[in-house]
Nucleic acid binder design. Structure first.
Length: 614
RNA sequence: GCCACCGUAGCUUAGCCUGGUAUAGCGGCUGAUUCGUAAUCAGCAGAUCGGGGGUUCAAAUCCCCCCGGUGGCUCCA
């Protein structure tokens, strides 16, 4: 049961047309001063009607005595919940509840169930005039939410383009189909339809990287060895970047108390998005980001202005968001995902902007490693933009190409400015990867402060940064880019440093397997991933399968090679060549580009590998 | 939440409209083959046709319900 109580000067309503099959009698009405109880009967309430109704009646009585008004109007209102009871069930619960309310000193009026209604309501607007309650069976407690601020103020945004020279252009209506234009279209148009599944889903399964896990909830994946390896490499790379930025790594819990004062308020901004877990009788929620854990650390820390900026980093593996079913899409949007999350505490906005600028560079470095085209979007409150125009010009220059600029007049979230890097997939959908935001709200909410020069406690600003964005989504971006390549007629591939097999050695017959082992050992010794296709198959088939696995380099060994110590190398994306070991290592080192390394995720000999998926 | 489409061996899939317990390839296993840059040959095993109910002498096939997947939409008492 979800209720919203408004202490009002008057309510007037009129039934317009039927909304549900089962409904009460049509009715219109007008009341003077009263408490309007907007009520959503939720799934399961009928089953637990006794407890639910008793609690709800208590809440209404309490509120009535608090505001000193005994006239109550029960208004069936579906929009407070997205898990509704059936109409019949809901009416039953409402009937029972009104029966009980009738026996109290309150005067009960009812608005009919099952109609589209027009209404006008005037809210008194004093401190107690709005109150929302959620009543759940077995909770043993009632959670409170003050809805006053969630009035959904629609902020107005202006979109424009900022060029590298700092000049600002208006959005052009049509224009060429450049990636930036696709992003603009995505941001400004409502239509986001696609009618086929994104290609990365089939790819992640075929390549045996990731798969859905039927034994879990939707949006929670299983990662096979090759996928896990890619994930770990990406994680290692982010870690390298945040360490470069000077962050300290921490680890924080995955479940949090609903009733914690700081968190309660925070949660209001993310309604009904969490997984709930019970610890005995007490409900907790799974974290949907690593913010809380790090904020709670900062809250207890003794911080001097001399320490700032301070950075905490955590690889939030995992974070959980109970996204609506229809919103889930492969690796693009999940319910359980991995989020590298860094928070920077700074003493003032100048220091904040300085940090934002250097984190912008690190994010660019990330995207470069990924080798996936991206577009930048900068969002900022209008006044703030005017005051800091120079800063934004510098950022635009750093990017070196036009970026989308959104100016909003009212702050709709906790940040005053932020940027993201978006990738555009083959369906023209945008997905944000790297992002940095300057938070001007949560230091106060979480009581995080530092001691300044003058000995006084002050509130820092907080930068939320995910230099990479969700790791899962990065793999989505990589696979979508590969799909885009094949659509352009190129061979799909991954960046060399992320290929599960970087070079495959093919013995022409079983007598050359030993030679392959020898070479593999040499390559593995300096950190490359080399494997050997020692299966009893024809050369043609082995080549074919190597190509199907997107292996970037394939080396065949037969009699000639053993004698000459020079090897023919088949290159997936480029010209085949021939080289001895020294030259080969040089070339591979160049391809590796100093990115993180990790050993082979599967047995070196293919004859020992099991299939994960047929 | 709602709508649409889908659900046949580990994977891909024929059959479904016009009812008679199922087709093939890959993969797996066994044997033969020791091979020069995208599929060597033969044999064997493998499916209560997503689950449940109904109609029928008979259901993968027709009807109903449920579950799962994919995509889309959405705030309606």
């Amino acid at each position: 049961m979800q209720i919203l109580m408004i202490h009002s000067d008057g309510l007037e309503f009129e039934s317009k047309k039927p909304a549900t099959k089962e409904r009460e009698e049509e009715k219109s009405g007008k009341y003077g001063e009263c408490i309007v109880v907007f009520t959503s009967v939720e799934k399961g309430d009928l089953k637990n009607k006794k407890e639910i109704i008793a609690q709800t009646v208590e809440e209404i009585k309490q509120y009535s005595s608090n505001v000193g008004c005994e006239d109550v109007v029960i208004y069936p209102y579906a929009h407070l919940s997205n898990e509704l009871e059936t109409p019949n069930g809901a009416m039953k619960v409402l009937d029972l509840m009104c029966d009980i309310l009738d026996k109290t000193e309150l005067n009960i009026e009812r608005v009919p169930f099952g109609w589209y209604k027009s209404f006008s309501l005037s809210c008194k607007g004093h401190e107690l005039s709005e109150l929302s309650r959620r009543i759940r069976a077995g909770d043993g407690r009632v959670s409170t939410e003050n809805v006053a601020l969630s009035a959904e103020e629609k902020t107005k945004s202006e979109f424009c383009i900022m060029n590298p020279d700092g000049e600002i252009d208006e959005l052009k209506e049509s224009g060429a189909k450049t990636p930036l234009n696709v992003l603009i279209k995505y941001e400004t148009k409502k239509d986001r339809t696609a009618n086929e599944e994104p290609p990365h889903i089939k790819l992640m399964q075929k390549l045996e990287l990731v798969d859905r896990e039927p034994g879990s909830d939707a949006g929670n994946m299983r990662w096979y060895p090759k996928g896990t390896m890619i994930k770990r490499l990406l994680e290692k790379k982010v870690e390298k970047l945040v360490k470069k930025a000077g962050a300290m790594e921490v680890e924080t819990p995955e479940i949090y108390d609903y009733a914690h004062p700081c968190l309660e308020e925070y949660l209001e901004r993310f309604p009904a998005r969490q997984y709930r877990v019970m610890s005995g009788e007490k409900p907790y929620f799974m974290r949907f980001a690593a913010c809380f854990g790090q904020f709670l650390i900062a809250r207890d820390a003794q911080i001097s202005y001399k320490h700032l900026p301070i950075k905490y980093y955590e690889l939030a593996h995992s974070s959980y968001r109970r996204e609506k079913r229809g919103e889930l899409a492969g690796l693009r949007r999940l319910r359980g995902f991995t989020m590298p999350d860094m928070h920077t505490f700074v003493k003032d906005l100048d220091q904040g902007l300085e940090e934002m600028s250097s984190q912008f560079s690190l994010s660019m470095e990330w995207m470069e490693s990924l080798d996936v085209p991206y577009e930048a979007a900068m969002r900022v409150q209008k006044d703030f933009f005017e005051e800091n125009k120079e800063f934004y010009k510098q950022i635009a220059k750093k990017l070196g190409r036009p970026m989308l600029l959104e100016l909003f007049d009212e702050r709709y979230a906790y940040f005053i400015t932020k940027f993201e890097f978006n990738v555009l997939d083959t369906q023209g959908k945008a997905a944000a990867l790297s992002t940095v935001q300057i938070d001007v709200e949560n230091a106060e909410r979480f009581e995080i402060n530092y001691v300044d020069k003058d000995g006084k406690k002050k509130l820092p600003y907080i930068l939320h940064a995910s230099l990479s964005g969700s790791i899962d989504r990065n793999l989505y971006a990589l696979l979508e880019e590969a799909a885009a390549k094949s659509r352009r007629g190129e061979k799909p591939s991954l960046p060399f440093w992320l290929c599960p097999t970087q070079i495959r050695l093919l013995p022409l017959s079983s007598e050359y397997v030993d030679k392959c082992s020898e070479l593999a050992k040499e390559l593995t010794g300096i950190g490359f991933r080399a494997d050997i296709d020692d299966r009893e198959e024809g050369l043609g088939k082995k080549i074919r399968e190597g190509e199907k696995e997107w292996v970037p380099l394939i080396l065949v060994i037969g009699e000639k090679e053993v004698e000459a110590e020079k090897y023919p190398i088949r290159v997936r994306n480029g010209e085949d060549f021939s080289a001895d070991m020294k030259e080969l290592i040089e070339i591979m080192t160049k391809m590796q580009e100093n990115e993180p390394q990790r050993s082979l995720p599967l047995p070196e000999r293919m004859s020992l590998r099991s299939k994960f998926r047929g």
